[in-house]
Amino acid sequence: MRSVPPVHPEFMLEPIFDQIGSGREAIGLGRRREAGLDTRHGTVLSLEGISVSFDGFKALNDLNLYIGVGELRCIIGPNGAGKTTMMDVITGKTRPDSGTAYFGDTLDLTRMSECQIAQAGIGRKFQKPTVFEALTVFENLELALKADKSVWASLVARLSGEQRQRIEEVLATLRLLPLAQRQAGLLSHGQKQFLEIGMLLVQEPRLLLLDEPVAGMTDAETEFTAELFRSLAGHHSLMVVEHDMGFVGSIADHVTVLHQGSVLAQGSLAQVQEDERVVEVYLGR
């Protein structure tokens, strides 16, 4: 099931028929992607020289990071290493003091608003699961669904059969179908995590940012999530921030260690774990 990141994503466009309800089906594999994003050079995200400081404290310090198309990258690092701030910069929540952030080859993220960035194809899952608690599970996905998101469109919007089917597919994949009409606020923590992942999926982003996606999940759920992410890689690019090394080991071939706002080490998990500096940072001095 593990898929190797393809060199040319265009080759993956032919439909692959999988059993219904699997992750592949849910993410709309085989559907034609929009032509908007220019990724000719093979990188979906490039951060160069990003610095952010809060009242003198440097949260990010000359950070350089590249994510390839279809790559699944794990970011680890001790608390305060700047992981969340980095995600804030990518999603437009925080503006960097200096440096450039490009989505694909042409979109300058530092000049776009949060919703423009989301529309361009970057989806984010928060550390604490945030869903629309007063709405049902189905309605949550309906709002997240990739569609025209202008005010006018929302006034006249009607769900097409195709869209409804798509939502139900994702719900089935995430094993939330029986709960479709349940109010999202009544879900358990793990179910909310899945719902949020589902909202990301129907958004059909090119790049998914996932902040501690398996926090509060049972072992079985964690295993299921790992499988889901592996199946997503290749067609989507993923950036996963996680503390659970077991989970990291089971999904990533490429790991980046952040420390004090910049990249400390990069490589496979085994390589990184042998790096003396990383050991020092994690075990303390």
Partner: peptide, 8 residues
């Protein structure tokens, strides 16, 4: 204002 990570 205190700048910093705003907790939602």
């Amino acid at each position: 204002a205190l700048k910093g990570r705003v907790i939602d």
